[in-house]
Design a binder for these strands. Structure first.
Length: 723
RNA sequence: GGGCGCGUAGCUCAGCGGGAGAGCACCGCCUUCACACGGCGGGGGUCACAGGUUCAAUCCCUGUCGCGCCCACCA
């Protein structure tokens, strides 16, 4: 106030006649409404029989008309400018003015002017020094400024009465159907009225300037970035902000009035009394302004007022500015913009460096959920059915930046299943003594599967960290889902089973410790996404934790934990096992058959891998035996695995036709790939302009496919010789 | 009237310049000693349409069609 940023003014404000208070522009909601456009004839003074036609969507406001405006260059009305009409029903003499606001294309080209009840008319009224007649009371009923017959009528009753009377007088020219937008109060739920009252205003334009600059300079950034544009758009066109409300709750405005209306704005009543005494030269009784501040004005102070400001508290020093503000786009104007303005003004520093604008959860039809529409999905019901972790995980995995989400219950169910999966995996670990060991060093493990899971865990951890830091929460949760479900549960725990009770106690112990470590890493990483189940498991897996999981440090995975050798070896095993399983399923070979597998033509490296992982492969693919051979045994189902041929000899059980069909299908697929590659590699433009690495990849790919096709042809030939 | 965004597998959605992915649903097999809220395997997509840029387009540009949202004083 003392800086001139807050002032009292008599202006048109948006008035909610239901709540009987002023509201801000932002609290007004435009609703598409099917209405009418009434054409009224206003008799011209002194010209018998001549009338001027005006069109209006709000007949009742004519009771407050103080002019008619026409465009200065509108020839139809040029001779009327400066003359007067006699306002029907009221009898007031109103002037005909020339003003560019009147649009010759609209309605009749002449427009009635009601300065006290329309924002445009208010401006016209100011330009022409027109009288401003307020015809409504605070409930939007007609007041004593109108003819007696209308007093006390509700605005809609008054509308009907005006139309009926005009018609009776023969002054209603015609009525057109007219769709237009009507302003409604978003809380009161009834049409708002432009209303002339004394209110407090904030000079938003001045406050906005530094807030605009801060975002231009990148001191505060929006994520996703496109909201920056929305912010600028609003801030650069900002209007004076009406900050007083005629409500019972909120910060009461610290303004006191003397008997003559003099205003004393002070921090306390004592100060106001003192100021008044000084002003009047004697002690004078004051009355305090009854209005309170707009809730968003108070909320705009939140980043520092909650921390003890204006005292320089340790909290203020520590938490102002904060770093990331998380909010919905619908709050950017209401709150984010105001916090920026207030923060920069009072603290001279932005309140936060990043605004993360999250998605809005919509209902199944894609509608924004709202209490008034009654389409709110109650999170408590979903939590009852699937758990809080499941809901939280679902929302985080659907939170793709810049996109709203339609909440599909099936995703919540899937998340619940995921939580159950984790729970069971942890139970398995516990039952097998796979618990955290304080002395465990993940960099020192020996067995390939253990080295591999350490490496994969570290890789996952680094990627998840990166995604979280980049605010890509959906990608982080997806990585975790895949790692935990696929890598950890699907491959690692299955591979660990034979080692836990195997004949090498040292490997068994190492595996137990590795699994315990990996599970801990999983809990640490998943905790932000599923806080409850991870915390429960964290505490139940070990009694002597240094801290609760919620307070545990975020895991760091150094380069040293990455092990490309182990990853390559296990990737080979995984692909081999998947291939064998696929063939088994397709050829209807039951696991119970425990068929053997023979690998032919292994390279040196693969031969070493096979040697080491032979029993693991047998275990994972449920095989009776696995061996290296020189030739494909007769009666084998065959598949290509890199440079090798893999044979499952099932002798007399084999269905030659079915097998040939399967191999031919596989071959056709690969031949199609080769054709595509050939086409690319014969394209001179591609060879000349594509990066060398891309060309090389293409060559390798083709070579690999060609090798596979050769193998497949050999396999087909062998079958043909049997058949 | 301005601005933003979306149309990818039946459904809900990721991906956004170098051979299309997930969850659910669907089909087949499996009561294998953590888990049937499970396991293994599989089918399914001219990435809305039309042009353009590029050696290369689901991805970039332009336009069209459809859908949604925000802002705005049209009587």
């Amino acid at each position: 106030y003392r800086e001139g940023l807050i002032y009292k003014d008599k202006r048109l404000v948006n008035w909610d006649p239901q709540l009987e208070t002023a509201i801000s522009d932002l609290e007004v909601e435009q609703r598409e409404t099917a209405g009418s456009l009434w054409y009224f004839k206003y008799p011209v003074e002194g010209e018998e029989g001549r009338t001027l036609t005006v069109a209006t969507t709000r007949p009742e406001t004519m009771l407050g008309d103080t002019a008619v405006a026409v465009h200065p260059e509108d020839d139809r009305y040029a001779d009327l400018i400066g003359k007067h009409c006699i306002l029907p029903l009221v009898g007031r003499r109103i002037v005909i003015v020339a003003d560019e606001y009147a649009d010759p294309e609209q309605g009749s080209g002449a427009v009635k002017i009601t300065p006290a009840h329309d924002f445009n008319d208010f401006e016209v009224g100011r330009r022409h020094g027109l009288e401003m007649i307020n015809i409504f009371d605070t409930r939007a009923c007609i007041n004593d400024a109108a003819p007696e017959a209308y007093r006390g009528l509700d605005r809609f009753e008054a509308r009907d009465r005006v139309v009926a009377e005009m018609q009776a007088l023969g002054l209603l020219e015609r009525v057109e159907e007219h769709d237009h937008t009507v302003p409604y109060g978003d809380r009161g739920g009834v049409p708002v009225e432009p209303y002339l009252t004394d209110q407090w205003f904030a000079d938003a334009k001045t406050l906005a300037a530094p807030a605009i600059k801060a975002v231009e300079d990148g001191r505060t950034r929006f994520f996703p970035e496109n909201w920056t544009k929305t912010y600028f758009e609003w801030m650069r066109n900002i209007q004076p902000w009406c900050i007083s409300r005629q409500l019972w709750w909120g910060h009461q405005i610290p303004a006191w009035y003397g008997p003559d209306g003099e205003v004393f704005v002070e921090l306390s009543e004592e100060d106001a009394v003192a100021a008044a005494a000084a002003h009047y030269g004697k002690k004078t009784a004051l009355t305090r302004d009854e209005d309170v501040l707009d809730t968003w004005f108070s909320s705009g102070l939140w980043p520092f007022s909650t921390l003890g400001w204006p005292e320089e508290t340790p909290e203020l020093a520590r938490y102002y500015p904060t770093d990331v503000l998380v909010t919905g786009f619908d709050i950017i104007f209401f709150w984010v913009a105001r916090m920026m303005m207030m923060g920069l003004h009072f603290m001279d520093e932005v309140p936060f460096h990043t605004v993360y604008v999250h998605a809005l959860v919509r209902d199944e039809q894609g509608q924004k959920m709202s209490k008034s529409k009654g389409n709110v999905i109650d999170p408590l019901e979903l939590i009852d059915a699937y758990g809080a972790d499941a809901l939280r995980f679902t929302l985080s995995s659907l939170a793709a930046p810049g996109r709203d989400v339609r909440l599909a219950e099936s995703r919540v169910e899937s998340s619940r299943n995921f939580a159950t999966k984790l729970w069971n995996a942890a139970r398995f670990c516990q039952l097998n003594g796979c618990v955290p060991d304080a002395d465990f060093d993940p960099a020192a493990v020996q067995a390939t599967v253990n080295r591999w899971v350490v490496s994969e865990t570290a890789r996952c951890g680094r990627e998840v960290t990166q995604k979280i830091e980049g605010l890509r929460f959906n990608e982080a949760s997806q990585l975790l889902y895949q790692f935990i479900y696929g890598t950890f549960c699907g491959w690692y725990l299955e591979s660990a089973k034979p080692l836990l009770d195997g004949n090498d106690p040292a490997i068994g112990a190492e595996t137990r410790a590795t699994a315990g470590w990996a599970l801990d890493q999983v809990l640490l990483m998943l905790h932000p996404f599923m806080p409850f189940v991870t915390e429960e498991l964290w505490q139940s897996l070990a009694a002597d934790r240094a801290s609760d999981l919620v307070r545990a440090a975020w895991p760091v995975h150094p380069d040293g934990l990455l092990d490309e050798e182990a990853e390559r070896e296990m990737s080979w095993v995984v692909r081999l096992v998947s291939g064998i399983r696929s063939v088994q399923a397709e050829m209807n070979i039951p696991h119970a058959a425990r068929v053997p597998v023979v690998l032919i033509g292994l390279g040196d490296e693969a031969a070493a891998w096979f040697e080491r992982q032979r029993s693991l492969i047998m275990w994972l693919a449920r095989l009776g035996d696995a061996s290296v051979g020189e030739a494909v045994p007769p009666g084998s189902v065959q598949m290509v695995h890199d440079e090798a041929t893999v044979a499952l000899p099932i002798a007399d059980v084999i269905d030659i036709d079915q097998e040939m069909q399967r191999l031919n299908k596989e071959k056709a697929k690969r031949v199609a790939e080769i054709d595509k590659s050939k086409k690319k590699l014969s394209n001179q433009g591609f060879l000349a302009k594509a990066p060398a690495a891309v060309v090389e990849t293409q060559r390798e790919r083709m070579a690999e496919e060609e090798r596979a096709v050769v193998k497949l042809e050999e396999a087909l030939a062998r079958l043909a010789s049997i058949g």
